[in-house]
Design a protein around this nucleic acid. Structure first.
Lengths: 186, 186
DNA sequence: TATCGTAGAGAACGATCGTTCTCCGCGCAA
DNA sequence: TTGCGCGGAGAACGATCGTTCTCTACGATA
């Protein structure tokens, strides 16, 4: 048998992939158990309910997102470059063959109305991203109003790319961000 | 008994409100029948399946959205004003107490992976909105690249407002749109 | 070796879903 | 008035869901 931490991670990773690919409600706990190789009894000893598993999956996605963002901004030296790196990160993500939009937006649309725990987890992640952008804008000579504008561009690019099925929105949002940055620096 | 057209409209309107408030999959056909006051047998004689009803609801939403947009731009005299009127329209919408995000984005997140008919209907509506923005931009002395940037702002404002639960994103997106318009006119 | 606790596999359970079917009552034609 | 067809109400059906329970096998301990 494997320890609780490993079992937990296997369940979360398997559920994450299934939920993202097919949608949360379309995936039964039986499918999670098969994909994770962890018995239903064990899953329910690690998570009180499917709702709790969903929240754990969202937290796992948050870590992946934060790590991807940090890695994308590594090569950048200025705050402006780190801001634009967000859109390059989106561009690479949109080009992945299994890209299906932002998991947080999708899950919020699916369960935000019926599960406040899910809605809270999604809101937390978005607030954390907005705070990240705000910190970068703070390093610029730019008014703080710029930060939510850039965050809105990133959000819009994600839904637009997901629905259109093309990665164009990343490049378009990046160009808009450059214009906003230039105007703020003026 | 009422005629087919009236029954159809009653079913679509009832389903629209229920789907938007609770999410599509959370609403059973029994709830639609009760809210619409139309028997299940009748509903299934008007729509072959729930999937078909969902698509009809999305088309109904498209008409409402188009009418709202047209009405919001009535007072505007220039293309620039009509573009900014989009964000005023969003602002008023976000302030409605039962605002729960864009129904197209929500439904796409919920069913886009499992129903291609739903995904197509959503994609159509978004493409139609982008074409509307592109027509307005065409009237300006501005490069056509501005249009998708403005559309991305509108999309981002909708998801941001839905998740955050506040209408702030409309004002922020409008300010960004003004900056982009100014930069394009330069 | 004998016994006990535990974990895995999956059957079982109750609820709910989309969809179909049955039954009943009403309106209309002859 | 009598028979008929059609529509409404909702029961029924089969599938599937989240969750729990049963049964079996195995490993550690005395």
């Amino acid at each position: 048998m494997i320890d609780d931490a490993s079992a937990r991670e296997r369940v979360v990773r398997a559920a994450d992939e299934l939920f993202y690919t097919r949608g949360v409600q379309a995936v039964g706990m039986d499918a999670v158990r098969t994909a994770a190789g962890v018995s239903l009894k064990r899953i329910y000893s690690l998570f009180a309910s499917k709702d709790e598993l969903i929240v754990a999956v969202l937290r796992h996605r948050t870590e992946i997102w934060d790590a991807g963002l940090a890695s994308a901004s590594e090569r950048a030296t200025t705050a402006r470059e780190r801001i634009l790196a967000i859109f390059d990160f989106l561009d690479a993500w949109f080009r992945e063959p299994d890209f299906r939009g932002c998991a947080f937006i999708n899950t919020h649309g699916e369960l935000g109305a019926s599960s406040s725990a899910v809605a809270d987890a999604v809101r937390e992640q978005k607030a954390s991203f907005q705070a990240y952008v705000a910190r970068l804008v703070d390093e610029l000579p730019a008014p703080p109003e710029l930060a939510p504008q850039l965050a809105i561009l990133a959000e819009g690019a994600q839904t637009t790319a997901a629905i259109a099925g093309t990665p164009d929105a990343a490049r378009q949002a990046r160009a808009a961000a450059e214009t906003l940055l230039d105007a703020a620096a003026r």
